[in-house]
Amino acid sequence: MSQSRFYSISPKGKMESFNSAEELISNHKNESYLWFDYYNPSSKELSTLIEPLSLHPLTIEDCTDENFVPKIEEYPNNSFMIFNAYTYEQKELYIDEVDFIIGKNYLVTVSGYNSNGRKPLNGIEKVVEREIENAKHGASHLLHIILDYIVDKKFVSIEKLEDELDEAEDILLSELEKFQAQDIILTRRHLLALRKSLFHEREILVKICRKDCPFISEKAIFHFRDIYDHLSKFFELTESYREIVSSLLEMNVSMMNNILTKSANQTNLSVRRLTLISTIFMPLTLLAGIGGMSEWSMMSGPENWKVSYPLFIFGMIIIGSLNYLLIKYLEKRD
């Protein structure tokens, strides 16, 4: 079953639904304007609008293209623009395309193309019904309502990214071993995608507010300036978040280096201790080797071993003590 919706909106605020585009066009009244809300349409479905709405074939091609980069293009009888809708779920950012074709008395919205079941404009008809006092003034006011809805959803995704950055910072400061640098790198990639999208969308709003789009009424331009302000703030937020990501990665490297330095210092201390012990016992080992061959009993006579061996052990203690004191003195002097 098709999920596309078709409406006629009168100047009195009456919103009438139709089953197909053909039915909507055939029942069109001069004082009303038309809203064609397509979800995941085929090129064939959209092509049926070329003749009755005087659409350029390139607009149909752009609606089914996989290029998600926002843009605005002017044609003799309408304006075409691409906007992006964001969805952030399970640490993955999804950017979906939403296309708009606005003419003198109609608005065409196309969403859901290559969106894997996501619905960027889900529930938009209820939003329009709530804002019918604004929507009844024309297609440009309806365009503002839909763009404002998309921009509000952008903020939800951006807030989720901010929460993840705050969580990553807390983990970095409290439990360094649980910090996942790859997650932060992925977040940086998402921020780059957001920055690219917001930059082009902001340019679209600049052109609208500059009155470069003839199908946007002058009364509606004031509303679009509010959307421009939101997009500018979001763009600045992405710049700030990118700086935070860079700081977190630098902090992680610095703290890991501190841990490695501490470990290296502990290893050096252990090696120094072993070196000290070896240095002290090297001459003692030599003397023990000589004493073990009974040299002392040969020099002092076998009958004097009770005296010679205690003196030998005492001498080893004196030599070991002198070695220890000499090493400590040299360390202090260095």
Rank of each mutant, 00 (worst) to 15 (best):
I259F: 02
L276W: 04
M256G: 05
L274F: 06
S263C: 03
L274Y: 03
N265Q: 14
N265R: 12
P302D: 14
T267K: 09
L274W: 02
L274N: 07
L269A: 14
A288N: 04
K306D: 09
S278H: 05
T275S: 14
N258E: 07
M316Q: 10
M251R: 07
M256A: 09
M299S: 11
K262V: 06
K262H: 10
V307G: 09
P302G: 15
L249K: 00
K262M: 08
T261V: 08
M251F: 01
E303N: 15
L249Y: 02
L287F: 03
M299D: 07
I290L: 10
V253C: 01
I277R: 02
T275V: 05
F312T: 12
K306C: 05
V307L: 13
P302I: 15
I277T: 09
L269D: 11
P283T: 07
E303F: 13
I259C: 06
W296M: 11
M316E: 01
E250W: 00
F281H: 03
Q266N: 14
L311R: 01
L284V: 00
V307F: 11
I318C: 13
N258Y: 00
L260I: 08
R273N: 11
T267A: 12
L269V: 11
A264E: 14
S263V: 13
M298L: 12
M293H: 05
E250C: 04
G315H: 02
S297F: 13
W305P: 01
V307I: 13
N257S: 00
G291L: 10
K262L: 14
A288K: 08
P302C: 12
N268P: 07
N265C: 03
G315W: 01
T279M: 05
W296Q: 10
V253E: 02
M298V: 13
S297K: 12
L260V: 07
I290C: 01
I259S: 02
R272Q: 08
M255N: 02
S270Q: 15
E295F: 10
T261W: 05
L274K: 02
M299P: 08
L269P: 04
S300T: 15
N258D: 03
W296K: 10
I290F: 09
M282G: 11
S294F: 11
L284R: 03
I318M: 05
G292A: 10
L311W: 05
G315Y: 00
